[in-house]
């Protein structure tokens, strides 16, 4: 029964989700949604691991999935704390307004 599912197609699904997540990171201005899009990408990577694990009939793929899950949880915790801090400071979580540091306004004119 399992044999019916083509491996390539499931891997393509993972790649597609990965790509959509990337689009999300690039077009979202809301920091929270940006982070959410990164989660989509990580989830896609986890899915790819599970496909690979199933292909080789090894548990390693799922183990890696669990590790990715753990990492995502820890990262979201720190990230959301940071976003809260940002909101406290700037009253906005717009990524485009977060450009205090750059090379353009600090343009180096003198020698």
């Amino acid at each position: 029964m399992m044999e019916q599912i083509p491996v390539e197609q499931s891997l393509l699904l993972a790649a597609l989700l990965f790509g959509i997540g990337l689009v999300g990171v690039l077009i979202r201005k809301n920091m929270i949604l940006m982070m959410m899009s990164v989660e989509i990408m990580l989830n896609a990577a986890g899915m790819a691991f599970i496909i690979a694990g199933s292909r080789w009939a090894q548990p390693d793929g799922q183990v890696m999935f669990i590790f990715i899950l753990t990492m995502a949880a820890a990262e979201v915790a720190v990230g959301l704390a940071l976003i809260l801090k940002l909101f406290h400071l700037q009253k906005s979580i717009d990524a485009d307004e977060m450009t205090q540091m750059n090379d353009i306004t600090e343009a180096s004119e003198s020698n």
Binding site: M2, I5, P6, E8, A15, G19, W56, A57
Partner: peptide, 22 residues
């Protein structure tokens, strides 16, 4: 990016392996 990845995925020299339950 997706096109590149699908190119890589679909250009498999080995025949498709079957999936199994873990």
């Amino acid at each position: 990016l997706f096109a590149i990845l699908s190119y890589a995925i679909l250009n498999q020299p080995v025949a498709t392996a079957s999936l199994s339950i873990v």
